[in-house]
Amino acid sequence: MYPREFDYVAPASLDEAFGALGDDSKVMSGGMSLLPLMKMRLFSPATVVDIGRIPGLDAIEDSGDHISVGALVRHADTATSDLIKANAAALATAASLTGDVQVRNRGTTCGSLAHADVAADQPAAVIALGATMFAQSASGTREIAASDFFVDAMTSALRSDEILTGIRFPKAGPGEGSAYDKLGRRGGRSDYAVAGVAAWVKKSNGSIEDARVAVTGVGTKPTLAAGVAEALIGSDGSDAAVKSAAEKAIDGITVLEDLYGSVEYKSHLAKVYVARAVKAALANAG
């Protein structure tokens, strides 16, 4: 219940924040993932860099053909933003299913992404949306594709001197739609994902012109299910086509057993939820 002692830094600017980052430091935005670990002393950084007071990072912005979400945008804002709901339903839904009311009021979308929990919801959504992640450091900004951002359990592509200052993804064009669905650990959609799937599709002339599908919860990291998209593209999006594509849900994914599912069950769930998410995305596609 009491974290180990640490140094606390609350920089007023990103430059100050970069200066405070070191080998044994940790960036905190909402703290919803970090503080419980610190309280249980499962993780004890020497320095906590609280970016919560840096101005300019809390906006959801419409930049014409893209939407950007700043580092301090909270889950509740992501979930209720009309802009995100209209253009990136997968992310709005995933944010609405993250934690509970209180967690959504403090935790941030980017914080959840940087934390890279294997069973978190929003990572799947940003992969499916083809988002770009902005990894900023004193030496500049790296743009990382969401599909390359999640490296392993609790490990992202961020270097220790970098901060995820925001993400950006394309707005929904004609015929495009996305969705997220999951089985939660408490059943229904409650709690972390036993298996969660985000799907993005682009329809054109009665067939699927493009698609991206990402799976979370079942393996070591949220993963792009490339085989599913491949099978979907060019198909008519019929239930049969979706079901057939869903069979490829775990291609290339190392499925792990845990308290909530065997390898067999989680593999099965991935397929079920790929089908559900793709169908919902097709329904959402204008």
């Binding site: 599912g261 065997s262 069950y265 099965h268």
Partner: peptide, 8 residues
């Protein structure tokens, strides 16, 4: 009767 058990 978690989903896992029921499905199995």
């Amino acid at each position: 009767l978690r989903p896992r058990r029921v499905w199995e």
